[in-house]
């Protein structure tokens, strides 16, 4: 198995007056091309796990590797570089940089990756087409887009740089069914075409139905890890 993400014995203790054990020894391997959900009740540690995976937070103990590189040993700048080159993020809401238009938001991710100007102009148009954003919408700023449109732009931005892993936090939470299904179709297609790994933190049954693998967390531990045929 081609392991994209390797998580070894991950612990996270929040010392905030009293100790809260958010993660108690999580071990998890994620293969390239996985299309998986991480679920669990609130307080189960899934937020913490995703934060650490994305290099946004550091564990108390344990190690995380992404494509063989030890994320947990990186400096802040190295983490920033890793995020810009290998990771894509889709958040629940307020995803976009408000002063940039839809196209510019996507282009921004390319600028950060150092893509040359010619490709930087074409690629966003192409990917925005793939996510189904009408051309007339592409020069609008986020404020003038609907929630579904904003999420599509966020997905486009997350995948345009062809990251190894896309971390998505409740990407469908604010969408109606029609938009949610379209978005899922899109991500599924990208997963298949490009072998991009998608990790969703969600309870949305619409997402659960499509995922190939379900990890369940409770009290900071993995309680089930099922693969769908």
């Amino acid at each position: 198995m081609d392991k994209v993400v390797e998580i070894q014995n991950l612990h996270k203790v929040y010392r905030d007056g009293f100790d809260v054990h958010a993660l108690r020894g999580v071990d998890l391997d994620i293969a390239r091309g996985d299309f998986m959900t991480i679920a669990g009740p609130s307080g189960s540690g899934k937020t913490t796990l995703l934060n650490i995976l994305g290099g946004l937070d550091r564990p108390t103990e344990g190690r995380v590797f992404i494509e063989g590189q030890e994320v947990t040993a990186m400096s802040r700048s190295e983490l920033a570089d890793l995020r810009r080159r290998r990771l894509g993020f889709v958040f629940q809401s307020f995803n976009l940089i408000p002063v940039l238009t839809a196209r510019e938001n996507v282009e921004f991710a390319l600028i950060l990756r150092g893509v040359e100007p010619n490709r930087r102009r074409e690629l966003p148009q192409k990917v925005l087409g793939q996510v189904g954003l009408d051309e007339c919408m592409r020069e609008r700023r986020p404020f003038d887009l609907s929630g579904g449109q904003q999420q599509r732009v966020a997905v486009a931005r997350a995948i345009v740089g062809e990251p190894a892993v896309v971390l998505a936090d409740e990407p469908t939470a604010n969408l109606d069914t029609e938009n949610a299904l379209a978005l899922l179709d899109l991500m599924e297609r990208l997963n298949e075409e490009r072998q991009a790994t998608f990790i969703f933190s969600t309870h949305d049954p619409r997402v659960m139905e499509r995922a190939k693998r379900h990890v369940m967390l409770r009290d900071g531990e993995v309680v089930s890890d099922e693969r769908r045929a």
Binding site: L56, D81, R83, R85, F89, F94, P98, R113
Partner: peptide, 15 residues
């Protein structure tokens, strides 16, 4: 703050 967070997630360095 939130916006800067997004930018950090996109890979903007602290500097």
């Amino acid at each position: 703050v939130r916006e800067f967070g997004i930018m950090m997630a996109l890979g903007l360095r602290p500097g």
